[in-house]
Design a protein around this nucleic acid. Structure first.
Lengths: 174, 174
DNA sequence: TTTGAAATGTTACAATATAACATTCAAGCT
DNA sequence: AGCTTGAATGTTATATTGTAACATTTCAAA
């Protein structure tokens, strides 16, 4: 049988065939590998936070993560969550969505890259994109202003293909 | 005499010749004109908030604006500031910098456009950019994912030309 | 097995933002 | 001028997001 692609392709939103359990499992495995290789510790707490961020393809707030941890019969405080998030960000295992004050799992960990995101205002899901042309255009635009970009933030809010075609979110003419 | 360009060019940071007073005056005049044309009211409060956002070319936080207002012997509360900011945003007279939770005057008001920003991590100033190639690349990238972009956020943190060439911020090899 | 650095726990608080309801203001009408 | 009405602002209270500072625990290297 043709295997179901558990890891989402770049720039795509999960569809009906998406096996999220598998998706998370794979992300965890990758994270483990990366941390081992780098000699950094993916502790139990960090792993839990990572799993909670990966609970869906929607960006997740820090306090949502906190609640998730607390549901597990622990009494965790905000700093614990923020420290774990900070670690995961530093390792490139998750990204922060600035426009939402929220976090989302990286679909291409291990690769140094600036995340670009498509964020659907209807279903709330976000898809990561790595578009060379966008990067190139940004570099060029900045360069001609004599500006040296270190940390680009590209977050594109709108409607995903699915939400465009279905539903009442579509009350606009085009 | 050759007039000093008070309004900053797109993508440029103020230099030694920048006459900020003139810059603000011009912004206020433009804002007045736009609001008049549209039949919306640039009240005194909104004007003050606008001026405070324009006090520099650094993005300004809502609570900084609040302090600015309070310095003027008023006892203003947060909602007042946020409402004024909301109005100015709706009219496209200012932009919000998501990655800083801060606001900055729009250098091209009246024009419907998605702001793109160069944000210097050293001097803290931000310059607006309207780069067609970036827009085009974004549209294309989104389109090939079947995504319809309504509200793009492009915020490029790094070093401006001036801070790159001068100073200790330059403790990296390139 | 010590021991020192890293990780987490804990307390308290800072910074950013909004809900809900009251009051004031300003423009059009009579 | 005096009404009327919707917009704007005032006011109180609280929600949400994030961090500083110090205590304790854990884990791996010596």
């Amino acid at each position: 049988m043709a295997s179901i692609a558990a890891p989402l392709k770049l720039g795509s939103f999960p569809d009906d065939h998406h096996d999220h359990k598998k998706c998370v499992t794979q992300a965890l495995r990758q994270a483990d590998g990366i941390c081992t290789t780098r000699g950094v510790r993916l502790t139990d707490m960090r792993r839990q936070v990572f799993a909670l961020v990966w609970q869906s393809h929607n960006p997740v707030g820090a306090y949502e993560v906190l609640e998730g941890l607390r549901a597990g019969a622990k009494k965790v405080q905000p700093p614990t969550v923020y420290r774990a998030l900070e670690f995961l960000l530093a390792q490139g295992l998750i990204h922060r969505i600035e426009s939402l004050n929220a976090y989302i799992g990286c679909t291409v960990p291990g690769d140094a890259h600036a995340g670009q995101f498509l964020i659907c205002r209807d279903c709330g899901q976000a898809a990561e994109l790595i578009d060379q042309r966008i990067d190139a255009a940004i570099d060029q635009g900045a360069k001609s202003a004599g500006f040296y970009v270190e940390h680009p933030t590209v977050e594109l809010e709108g409607l995903c293909a699915h939400c465009r075609s279905t539903s009442e979110a579509n009350s606009h003419y085009e």
